[in-house]
Design a protein around this nucleic acid. Structure first.
Lengths: 178, 178
DNA sequence: GTCTATACCTAGATAGAC
DNA sequence: GTCTATCTAGGTATAGAC
């Protein structure tokens, strides 16, 4: 099927990025693996950055949609836990990209996605704990959210249900949720 | 003082690595900042990898010493919390290097430090929870330890005491410590 | 211990034919 | 949409003078 070369490039690139890191993957490797030449990539993507960004973007978009579609203000008792569960599932669904980001956090900066993810984190914390949380609560939220994302990376080989239950449990406890 | 050029190189390199990431820092930048030439660096370090490793090593050594100097077996009640506190302080003391690693986790792999850090984590979990913890407990420990290291990076501008108290509190809760 | 000079490679990227 | 050919910039690293 002609026309899906772009998708195939992203597929191969994502696989290599996850396996050996983004910084350690060259366009040459990607094109060789596809059986095409390097310049051919440039027909589909304006630059290497563009290719990488196109792979990370869906996760960032989904994260933003996630907080956009919830009513603002602090979650009621019991709702916060559901929020953590849904958030975990989102990160798990995108776990290949989550892995890329966790292993090379600095990517967000070089791709100008850092600000967006940072803003997302603030809004997420506001949903969990209300606006203007104390530094103490922000720190607890960082443990909770950072911990959950680490788990989607480190325990990607275990069954979802098991990881989800334990990770959400730990995150909720870190937040001192009831 | 002649003879401390090596230390000055490490100092400048560490600063640049923290500010703009390891991968985005070239030997040219380091040598220019020092007012020496690129080849001069090669008198002090066999390679770029060697330089980077020499900067990360002290943290890894300290982590290993940390678990080496504690009696094996599960910590008693109350001891686990002290263990988390000491661990936090260690990461905070090395927080420049901790930052480098958290932002570019994949460095550990390329420098052959990944195995050592992974083994450290297993031993640390054994100290906290006893040998052969269930997957559930391992996941909780990942949230706790990963969360604490994230905090040393993200809240490096706040007073130690405040970050330490909140981060250890959250980590202990994630572990379901009494 | 530090310099000049340079070799060598690989990367990302472009021009233009087909 | 993909190719060949090529450019340029930057990287790591070495040889040999001082």
């Amino acid at each position: 099927m002609p026309g899906d070369t772009k998708a195939r490039i992203q597929e191969v690139a994502r696989e290599l990025f996850v396996r050996q890191g983004v910084q350690n993957t060259s366009l040459r490797q990607i094109s060789e693996r596809l059986g095409i030449t390097k310049p051919a990539l440039y027909y589909h993507f304006a630059s290497r950055e563009d290719l990488v960004r196109s792979i990370l973007q869906p996760l960032v978009d989904d994260l933003e949609r996630f907080v956009d579609t919830r009513p603002p203000g602090e979650a009621r008792a019991g709702e916060a836990r559901a929020l953590l569960e849904d958030c975990f599932e989102l990160m798990w669904r995108h776990r290949e990209v989550t892995t890329m980001i966790v292993r090379e956090l600095s990517l967000l900066g070089t791709l100008d996605l850092g600000e967006r993810v940072f803003a997302w984190q603030r809004r997420m914390i506001a949903l969990l704990l209300g606006p203007d949380p104390t530094p103490e609560l922000q720190i607890r939220a960082t443990v909770a959210l950072g911990g959950m994302s680490d788990c989607t990376v480190e325990y990607a080989h275990l069954p979802v249900a098991q990881v989800k239950r334990a990770a959400v449990e730990a995150a909720a406890a870190a937040l001192a949720l009831p």
